[in-house]
Design a protein around this nucleic acid. Sequence first.
DNA 1: AACAATACATAAGTGAGTTATGTATCTAAG
DNA 2: CTTAGATACATAACTCACTTATGTATTGTT
Lengths: 110, 110
Amino acid sequence: MHSPELLKGTLQTIVLKVLKDNGRMYGYEITQRVKELSDDRILITEGALYPALHKLEAEGMLRTETETIGKRVRKYYSLTPQGRSLVKERVNEFVEFIKTMGNVLQLQIK
Amino acid sequence: MHSPELLKGTLQTIVLKVLKDNGRMYGYEITQRVKELSDDRILITEGALYPALHKLEAEGMLRTETETIGKRVRKYYSLTPQGRSLVKERVNEFVEFIKTMGNVLQLQIK
DNA sequence: AACAATACATAAGTGAGTTATGTATCTAAG
DNA sequence: CTTAGATACATAACTCACTTATGTATTGTT
């Protein structure tokens, strides 16, 4: 598991990108997908995820559809056109960030 | 300038690594070196730096020597052997983190 | 003289996260 | 069958590394 400090500020980027790559998903599914992609190194907590999803929805980046499976309610999220732009922005931002950190920490890039 | 959120948790790593690469340095010098290495993208604030240095010193990672230039006091910091271990640990941690993020965000790592 | 840069330090405030708690359904084990 | 774990959502209290603000003092520049 990674130091939680480093993860700060990456949650939105992760959520948006995973939604872009996987289409419509519900909250719990996102946590599981990230766990899988990160080989158990990034475990998104519900207390962080749900407020983040609500915020992105309120900002018009995501839209939701509610589906009932048996008696279980699932809230599916997908990107709006605005959300699609934001993904690109956020991912670019992150790539720039690691480039800069590569310089500062003198990491061998490639 | 990078989104300050992404920087969270990287300050200690940056300070330790810059000290390792440059030998003994004083606080203000560290901020300037990081500004330079990051092409003005990472501007360490004094309110973050000095407490961080004091903490690392209290933990035995850094030692200090005070020097007086004219009437100006400078506090030089350098790594202790323990500090040297910590640099490696922190830098490895960061590298692992960006590898994981590379997987999650499906970035081209070539 | 006045302002910017150098050089240190600490206190108050912020905000994205963690931790804790609550509700409820589904499924596997003993 | 009932108990525990996984599934699925949600929100409130708290934490803590940072930003912002403030303070002191020297040095260099206009």
